[in-house]
Simulated assay, not measured.
Amino acid sequence: NNTNSTEIRSFVFYLFFTLALLFYISVIFANTLLIVIIYVNRNLHEPMYLFLCNLFVNEIYGSTSLLPCLMVQILSDTHEISVFFCFIQIFNIHTYVAVEYGTLTIMAYDRYACICKPLHYNTIITTRKVQIVILVIWVVSFLEVGVLLSFTIRLKRCGTVINNIYCANHLVVELSCSSDRTVSLIHDLIFGLIFSVAAPVSYITYSYIKILSVCLKASTDTKTKAFDTCTPHLISLIIPYLCIILSLYVMIIQPLQNPIIYGLKLSKVRCACKNMLTLKASQLYRVLYFHKYSAV
């Protein structure tokens, strides 16, 4: 019985490891493919697609912060992580979330400017401004999470067990027996929830209310255009909250969700992807064809 239970346990662990590995490969492949497509196609060098490219880079960053460590833990018998790597993971994961919502917020403003102020759009949103905004999002996210961790690192920890599949700041704070624990939890609430999530979601909601009010008065073509460009953005916002309600980890779902949504829904990206894959297939065929007749 013990032998059978051990074999079943090993089989389950190896199954989870395989699924996690396949999922990670899919995330890297899908996001990298769309980044390359946006980079090589000059007609996609527009503000919205630059924001999407930043989003895809962040998905690779976020999934790499979680999945490799998770796969190691699946195959480990002790399920241990050093304090140093735990804080590194906290920094990476919290930065990922901050950049994610920061990018989605700017994308909401981009859609608002495009639909509500179309005549001034090219003046309001320029490539140079987009590059600066993307840089600011990353710098602010690093600084925000760095300040948050500076309070957590100083706490004296009395516990060593985290009941989660990855390290999170509030879980490490809960292990503390220091008198500053309450202060750290308050900072976690302010930086982690209000600045990173609540404020961006509030602005995104406001932007789409304004977009909806304009669309209600617009022509059918404008409504269709607004629906096509805004739907992927709304889906990428709604699904994380459904995942939270269903107790699924956003860190696992989100990195593969966005490239699928934007890759399938946005016609320019879909056509560029199709053209690239067709071109690569034809080049491969010519190489094989030439090799065949050269051998003859």
Results as ranks from 00 to 15, higher is better:
Leu288His: 14
Asn58Pro: 03
Leu279Cys: 08
Tyr61Asp: 02
Lys280Leu: 13
Cys177Glu: 12
Tyr249His: 10
Leu70Arg: 01
Thr123Glu: 14
Arg128Phe: 15
Val133Tyr: 04
Ile238Thr: 15
Glu59Gly: 06
Val269Asn: 15
Leu70Ala: 08
Asn54Gln: 14
Phe85Gln: 03
Cys116Val: 00
Ile194Asn: 04
His45Ser: 05
Cys53Thr: 12
Met48Lys: 12
Val172His: 04
Ile238Leu: 15
Leu266Asn: 14
Ser247Thr: 10
Thr103Lys: 05
Leu171His: 14
Val287Cys: 12
Ile186Pro: 06
Val269Lys: 06
Ser247Pro: 13
Ala281Phe: 07
Phe51Ile: 01
Pro47Thr: 01
Val145Ser: 13
Pro259Ser: 06
Cys69Ile: 02
Leu148Ala: 13
Lys156Gln: 14
Lys280Thr: 09
Arg270Gln: 13
Gln89Asn: 12
Ile165Ala: 03
Leu216Cys: 13
Gln254Met: 10
Ala108Leu: 00
Gly62Cys: 00
Ala198Cys: 06
Ser236Pro: 04
Cys273Val: 15
Asn43Ile: 02
Val97Asp: 12
Lys129Arg: 14
Lys292Thr: 15
Cys116Pro: 04
Ser219Phe: 14
Lys129Val: 04
Tyr285Phe: 09
Gly159Gln: 07
His291Val: 05
Val161Thr: 09
Leu55Ala: 05
Lys223Pro: 07
Ala20Gln: 02
Cys215Leu: 09
Asp188His: 09
Lys225Tyr: 10
Ser219Gly: 12
Leu70Thr: 09
Glu174Val: 03
Val83Thr: 09
Ile134Met: 05
Ile88Pro: 02
Leu193Pro: 00
Lys292Arg: 10
Asn41Ile: 00
Thr78Ser: 06
Phe195Cys: 06
Leu288Thr: 11
Leu234Thr: 13
Leu75Cys: 12
Tyr109Trp: 06
Tyr14Ser: 01
Gly159Ile: 04
Arg42Trp: 06
Leu135Trp: 03
Gly146Ala: 02
Ile137Tyr: 07
Leu155Phe: 04
Lys223Trp: 13
Thr103Tyr: 03
Leu22Asp: 07
Leu33Gln: 15
Cys53Leu: 03
Leu21Gly: 12
Phe87Ala: 06
Leu148Trp: 08
Met48Pro: 05
Thr224Val: 08
Leu67Thr: 01
Cys215Asp: 15
Met48Asn: 10
Leu212Tyr: 10
Val201Asp: 05
Val72Ser: 11
Glu46Pro: 01
Leu234Arg: 10
Gly192Ile: 00
Gly146Asn: 14
Ile28Ala: 09
Ile74Val: 12
Leu143Arg: 03
Pro200Met: 00
Leu70His: 13
Val130Gln: 05
Ile106Gly: 02
Val287Ser: 13
Val296Arg: 14
Asp77Phe: 14
Ser294Tyr: 12
Leu277Gly: 10
Asn4Glu: 12
Ala198Asp: 04
Pro47Val: 03
Lys292Gly: 09
Arg111Ile: 03
